[in-house]
């Protein structure tokens, strides 16, 4: 008797959870759009979009919800939970999600960016000089920084996993502090603005760039959305993409004004911001570069088992794809 009551309770609570789930879905159908980004100069077009209310001007009666999440894992989870329509992430985390069965594709690229492995040890000139005891800080396993490190390691030592046991996960600011104090970690794989700040320090130098690791240029940040959003809100989707284009064009055409707008949110001076966003390796564009390189490498080294027959399986708008 007791048992059957308990089982009933379990089933009821499951049913309840399911109802909540359904409700969430219903909410999404209402006119509302949730967008998540992360912190960093790679996301600058989104700041412009926000500050200049580009999307808002085009969309009446639509509630726009901007979120800043701490890492790509959180973005992935929020999309699955139905809390998020559009997320901005690097290519490897996108591929991992896709590989695990997330029904999402890339909408557009937004930025290319210098990435680099920085160290304070004068004796360390390349990956080869890193000892077993030397720890490397990066945001998390499976991040673009991790995959780039694995690529370089594969090229140099034919062992993609060589450094996997020497990783310390740290957010960029923590990683920078750890590097500056010269304790605990030897090297930090980072992105702008931290890479610029670190390289400005006299005692720090770069031993590996993202481009060297991958063997070419690649898109740093892409916008992704799920099939739910794409299929049911095609109009919203199009409007968002147009706004993104507008924002990217604005940065490229008005770097000075953009720098002024961006400086505040990055807590930098206008001058520094201008310097950073006009850095020759810092490019804002909708192109998607390096997708195949990441995919093939990650597939061959068992990070994912995903492959594709048609690039349309990975990208909604194939126009942006650059082989």
């Amino acid at each position: 008797m007791k048992k059957s009551i308990t089982i009933l309770l379990i089933i009821l609570s499951i049913a309840f959870l399911y109802m909540m789930y359904i409700n969430q879905k219903a909410d999404l159908k209402a006119q509302k759009i949730s967008i998540a980004e992360q912190y960093g100069l790679g996301y600058a077009p989104l700041q412009i979009m926000k500050e200049k209310a580009i999307l808002e001007k085009k969309l009446d009666n639509v509630e726009i919800n901007w979120q800043k999440l701490g890492n790509t894992t959180a973005i992935r989870e929020a999309i699955i939970a139905g809390n998020l329509d559009i997320g901005f992430v690097a290519i490897p985390p996108f591929l991992i999600g896709k590989d695990k069965g997330m029904n999402w594709k890339i909408m557009s690229g937004i930025s290319q960016s210098p990435l680099g492995l920085i160290t304070y040890k004068d004796s360390v000139k390349s990956l080869e000089d890193l000892q077993i005891s030397d720890k490397i800080a990066l945001p998390q396993p499976g991040s673009i920084q991790h995959i780039l490190l694995a690529m370089a390691s594969q090229k140099m030592f034919q062992d993609a996993q060589k450094f996997d046991n020497r990783l310390v996960t740290m957010k960029h600011p923590d990683g920078m502090n750890a590097l500056l104090t010269g304790r605990e970690i030897t090297a930090h794989f980072t992105s702008p603005p931290y890479i610029f700040k670190e390289l400005a320090q006299e005692n720090l130098h770069q031993i590996l760039s993202g481009e060297e690791a991958l063997g070419g240029q690649f898109t740093f940040i892409v916008g992704v959305c799920s099939k739910d959003f794409y299929g049911k809100n095609l109009q919203l989707y199009q409007i968002f993409l147009e706004s993104l284009k507008e924002a990217i064009n604005y940065i490229n055409e008005n770097p000075r004004d953009s720098a002024t707008i961006l400086a505040e949110s990055y807590n930098l001076t206008d001058k520094k911001t201008y310097e950073y966003i006009t850095h020759p390796d810092m490019k804002y564009s909708q192109e998607i570069k390096g997708l195949d390189e990441f995919l093939i490498f990650m597939n061959e080294n068992n990070y994912i088992s995903l492959y594709y027959d048609d690039i349309g399986e990975l990208i909604w708008e194939v126009d942006f794809y650059e082989k």
Partner: peptide, 24 residues
């Protein structure tokens, strides 16, 4: 929270790593 500060890390790191690779 720390990640694999020491070689392979422990059980908490195991979960964190699986989460990072979206391996539910």
């Amino acid at each position: 929270l720390f990640g694999a500060a020491n070689s392979i890390g422990g059980l908490g790191w195991f979960i964190f790593e699986k989460r990072s690779f979206f391996d539910l």
